[in-house]
């Protein structure tokens, strides 16, 4: 894996292709909300622990999210403090103090390494994929909807996604991220022990995501989410040109 960036999450409600017998849009919308699809904006802390080639590394990020953009600032360890990753739509920018300009990283360049993990965390299903209901399937003793998502943009990192959502809870249990040929590249499993208060109601919110490399299952990354809060961030925060300021 190329790096160990893990970034915040997902997603937007957007437009989806509906399955004829299952209300695809409604199901995916609900699950997305439990992973951060809040229009007003969110922030949280992500602790990332990676095992790569039997080596452990840990990092901590402070994530600010709004409207499919993510501003991720490195907090720990100290030598990486101040580094910023800006997920603007599908593109990623890297910046650190002292550089004359930020560096863009395209979707395909993200595929190698942990940038791919960050991309999993920030995948925008609504905007980038067309969803189709496939069948019902049991995962971890839970009956789940299996949706197949196909990329409808040229520059997405993953061309296809298999996505399992629990019928009972409406929470996404698992996702497999595939290449154009359908070859598995990465897989992710989710758990939701956090609670988020939104418009007077409490919603389950993701607390952990485990991402595994399909080619080498020993290479794993775990994102732990804490302190999720609704926060209305200014739009200017997500402007690439403001990174230098």
């Amino acid at each position: 894996m190329f790096s160990k960036i893990f970034v915040s999450l997902i997603l937007l409600s957007g437009s989806f292709v509906f399955a004829s017998t299952v209300d695809t849009k409604k199901i995916i919308e609900y699950s997305d909300r439990t992973r951060g699809a809040i229009p007003e904006g969110l922030e949280w802390i992500v602790k990332l622990n990676s095992v790569e080639e039997e080596e452990n590394t840990s990092r901590e990020f402070f994530v600010k999210y709004k409207s499919n953009d993510s501003y991720v600032e490195s907090k720990a360890p100290a030598k990486f403090e101040g580094e910023v990753f800006l997920f603007k739509g599908r593109s990623l920018w890297f910046f650190k103090k002292g550089l004359r300009a930020p560096v863009s990283i395209s979707a395909r360049q993200k595929l190698s390494g942990a940038a791919a993990n960050g991309d999993i965390a920030s995948t925008n299903y609504a905007q980038d994929y067309t969803a189709t209901f496939v069948k019902m399937e049991t995962v971890n003793n839970e009956e789940c909807y299996l949706f197949h998502l196909k990329s409808n943009a040229d520059d997405t990192t993953y061309d296809q996604i298999d996505y399992w959502i629990s019928k009972k809870t409406g929470l996404a249990i698992k996702a497999n991220f595939l290449s154009l040929q359908g070859k598995p590249l990465k897989s992710a499993v989710f758990s939701y022990k956090n609670q988020l208060k939104y418009k007077g109601k409490q919603y389950p919110f993701i607390n952990e995501m485990k991402i595994t490399d399909a080619k080498n299952p020993n290479n794993q990354s775990t994102l732990n989410y804490s302190n999720p809060k609704i926060k209305n961030h200014p739009v200017s925060l997500f402007n690439v040109n403001n990174l230098k300021r």
């Binding site: 960036i5 590394t57 990092r59 030598k79 990486f80 580094e83 890297f94 560096v103």
Partner: peptide, 8 residues
Amino acid sequence: SGGFAATD
């Protein structure tokens, strides 16, 4: 040492 590194 892990992570991205960048330089002008």
